[in-house]
Write a protein that binds this DNA or RNA. Structure first.
Lengths: 375, 375
DNA sequence: ACGAAATATCATGGAGAGCATCATTATTCG
DNA sequence: CGAATAATGATGCTCTCCATGATATTTCGT
């Protein structure tokens, strides 16, 4: 994003203002010129000029006037979110999910393909192809219409979109996801760890919308974390942030063993605990204790505004959140707000969309470039 | 800092360019117009215009021309770092340190007053007054000449500059440092925890100069941490980041007990270990193990580029760093570079200076405001 | 039904900022 | 002492934004 502002040309100023206008328009259904002017701080005259240019370039369209109110009715303008598409993919153990979203991040098409954790590399990649192809077909588009793709997967991911290390999936270590997805859609591909993407999604459209610093806990068959710091996804120097589970004393390794020991299927333990089963309740208690220990380490390290719990177990929030909060209270200097994920198993794919949109916004959403060059 | 660039006026553009010119000039001894133009990306003509304005406003001065070279000799310009001063204060258990620095961050005057950890609140504050007064007297200045002050202290600090909680110093909890220092120099006062400031200093002028993500370990009679994430000091939602020591399983609470058990004075243990004393070596080993456990938690959480060890014990780096590196290797997925502090016990006060300079740069170093209004 | 009030659009002119270009000036080199 | 080199200074152009006032279109009150 616009990190270091080094000043420059006059046209740079117009570019900044065009960006400001687009930002003002994004998210809103439609705005009048006066409203845009007020929201950007520009004068009405200049706003008009900028909007005219954006209209001509294809970034903005006129929206129908709304009735009512005294005085001459204002023309209304809206951001042409439908001008571009991004592709989001979530490669999970049991499910491959793909979605297409417009430039506002609204999902327009989605598809998923069931898989199994044991599936080999080629088959899993084929499932990715299938899910993406279904999406594109539904939308009546081709890969060439995609401006950027975001991909979420388990495991550590390197800067170039290759999976460095995956413990959960066989034959997955070393796969070059960026290259694979770029075959489907010849646009930039951004690959990221699934916990990190879920964190991103919760800060964008989930329960952490107003938090600048947030810790996301993936509570499921695997346990993981994603960090958003100062409003930005924190990746770390080698993209290995949030891997607190590697520290044995913090208990994430043994965490879900407690659940499996108590019952065959991990998910059932929560149901049993809820139903009053003493042994199940004890298992859940031990699980939460372990989860909270690692979470406390993250909270004490970062002092975030909020902790969001997601992953498969977040469906059992009623027996998870309260005990977790109590355990955090035991260890933390200041216990942050603890919330359950609002996005469920859509979090990762939404995070992928956000990742792709971030790329689009940094590359083409400057308002100066004409749309034609991206169609 | 220039966070969100929302565009704006033409004068805003000039402001950005003036800032860019100042940044280009800062740090360099002197530059010609052509050099400034190249470094900012502006045209020569515009650069000349901006520099003329800065010259007139007092931000820039002409420097002596350097001989040699063919062609008409260029005039040289330099940033007038001496135009303003900031005050940095480090309130420690044994020593109160105060420095004055110019706008380049070069320390021009310094003073310190010995204290004891047992000293009461009023006496300690009096020592702060004395150190600051000595500095100002040396410089021939008064508090009114100070543009901003930075203060480092042990304990948790709230957003308004009040000490929330100090375990190390008696009667220190609740003291309003910002208000106290503002009496000495009627300018903005920024108060921060000492570990955090040391981290800031190491990233500015220490061994972490080129690291964007860094974990600073304060290894001394107290154990603490400071985090720099994405080039910025990470404070946390309630300014309580880095407090990983609160988690008992990570060992920071018992860490230096090992050293005291082995010897009367903690510092001596390292000397004894170096000299071959078996019991002392074992004590150091246990200390490092505990230190490394908490450090590993921070490293795994953040995946920083570098770990810097400072604090009193960093003088014994020869018996600390290598074992620490080995212990980190045991727990971490990717062990970051481990370095000893280059700043020693000046780190905190330098961090205070940096804190004050950040404030100055965000408030007045825009190049548009004339210097007169700050004298 | 018609004027007043309200609100929006459109048009003009001016000021600030940056840039290209070219003439001028001050050096060193051969 | 002239040629080459590199910086300075001056002129004019363009782009962008803004203030202001004229014009257009609607609702409200009578």
């Amino acid at each position: 994003m616009a990190d270091e502002v080094s000043g420059g040309d006059l046209s740079r100023l117009r570019q900044l203002n065009a960006q400001a206008v687009i930002r003002a328009l994004q998210g809103q259904p439609s705005l009048t010129l006066t409203e845009v002017a007020r929201s950007t701080g520009l004068s009405r005259a200049s706003t008009e000029d900028v909007v005219r240019e954006l209209l001509q370039k294809g970034w903005v369209a006129e929206a129908g006037a709304t009735a009512g109110g005294v005085g001459r009715p204002a023309r209304r303008y809206r951001f042409r979110a439908e001008a571009g598409r991004v592709l989001g993919i979530d490669i999970g153990g049991h499910k491959i999910r793909a979605v297409l979203a417009d430039l506002d991040g609204n999902v327009t098409d989605s598809a998923w393909v069931p898989v199994t954790p044991e599936l080999g590399r080629a088959e899993r990649l084929a499932a990715v192809d299938e899910a993406a192809a279904q999406c594109l077909e539904q939308a009546g588009l081709t890969g060439a219409d995609v401006w950027a793709s975001g991909v979420g997967t388990t495991g550590l991911v390197d800067g170039s979109g290759r999976v460095m290390l995956s413990e959960a999936l066989p034959e997955w270590t070393g796969v070059d996801l960026a290259a694979h997805v770029r075959r489907l859609a010849p646009a930039p591909v951004l690959v990221e760890n699934d916990s990190k993407l879920a964190a991103l999604a919760e800060c964008w459209r989930g329960v952490a919308r107003y938090a600048k610093d947030m810790v996301f806990l993936l509570a499921g068959l695997r346990t993981g974390a994603g960090l958003v710091i100062d409003g930005k996804l924190h990746r770390g120097f080698a993209n290995a942030s949030g891997e607190i589970g590697a520290l044995p004393v913090l208990g994430w390794i043994r965490a879900q063993e407690h659940l499996q020991a108590a019952s065959g299927e991990a998910g059932d333990v929560f149901a049993a605990a809820r139903a009053g089963d003493k042994a199940a309740a004890a298992a859940v208690r031990r699980y939460v204790k372990d989860l909270a220990l690692g979470a406390s380490a993250l909270v004490l390290a970062l002092d975030p505004q909020m902790v969001v719990v997601g992953g498969g177990f977040s469906r059992s929030a009623d027996v998870l959140i309260e005990p977790l909060r109590r355990e955090l209270d035991r260890w933390c200097i200041r216990t942050p707000e603890v919330r359950m994920s609002a996005l469920g198993d859509e979090a990762v794919v939404l995070g992928s969309v956000r990742l792709a949109l971030d790329d689009v916004e940094s590359r083409v959403l400057d308002g100066r470039t004409a749309l034609v060059s991206h169609l």
